[in-house]
């Protein structure tokens, strides 16, 4: 509640100032994102990987993407887990501070889109707090909410898999943040045109 008081005299890092300054203008770019986390507790759990794509003019720009695996050494060490699968992955590996910094640069002032996006946003906010930054300022859209709005359903939540089935998006066995982000992006395009969002 009094977060803003806590932060009022704090000097933010350079990339954060830069990010905040981007909000002078409105953006027509959407960034669809998905994160993999170690669990569902925003206080104790960490982001393990991020996948995201930009959507401009109703098309997914494959080249305009961000993917990273976060090396959470401390977390794995503290919990006595093996980080072998992370080390083996061919993906770009970054420490949390570098990854979050790069990701913030990538999203800029775009509208964020995701499946149950509030959780992703909270996870990122937690990571930002560790870097002495404020909270994300972007607007956010949730495809589950969009789907429920389209069909006038209030009493039920839908998983990403259920949505993919409903909109005929082929599922495959590969599961990663990027894969989820891509599926979410396709769902977003379909929902967007059905709801008539520009």
């Amino acid at each position: 509640m009094l977060d803003w008081l806590k932060n009022i005299n704090k000097e933010h890092p350079e990339f954060w100032k830069n990010y905040v300054s981007k909000f002078d203008k409105k953006s027509s770019r959407y960034v669809v994102l998905s994160t993999e986390t170690s669990g569902l507790n925003t206080d104790k759990d960490f982001i393990l990987s991020i996948g995201s794509f930009a959507v401009i003019d109703s098309s997914i720009i494959i080249g305009d993407s961000f993917e990273a695996v976060l090396l959470q050494y401390k977390f794995f060490h503290d919990n006595g887990l093996s980080n072998e699968f992370l080390v083996e992955s061919k993906m770009k590996k970054l420490g949390e501070p570098d990854a979050i910094k790069a990701f913030i640069d990538f999203i800029g002032n775009s509208t964020l889109v995701g499946h149950h996006i509030d959780f992703d946003v909270e996870m990122i906010n937690a990571a930002l707090e560790r870097l002495d930054c404020g909270r994300l300022k972007n607007e956010a859209l949730d495809i589950d909410v969009m789907h429920r709005k389209l069909n006038d359903i209030n009493d039920k939540q839908f998983s990403l898999d259920e949505l993919c089935t409903a909109y005929n998006i082929p599922k495959n066995d590969r599961n990663s943040a990027a894969e989820d982000a891509y599926k979410t992006a396709l769902l977003f395009l379909k929902l967007k045109s059905r709801l008539g969002i520009k």
């Binding site: 109703s58 098309s59 997914i60 720009i61 494959i62 080249g63 992006a185 396709l186 395009l189 379909k190 045109s193 059905r194």
Partner: peptide, 14 residues
């Protein structure tokens, strides 16, 4: 090539 691709969704009859 794939990196430069745009993915476009077309509604029925679009």
């Amino acid at each position: 090539i794939a990196t430069s691709i745009r993915v476009v969704n077309l509604e029925k009859h679009k």
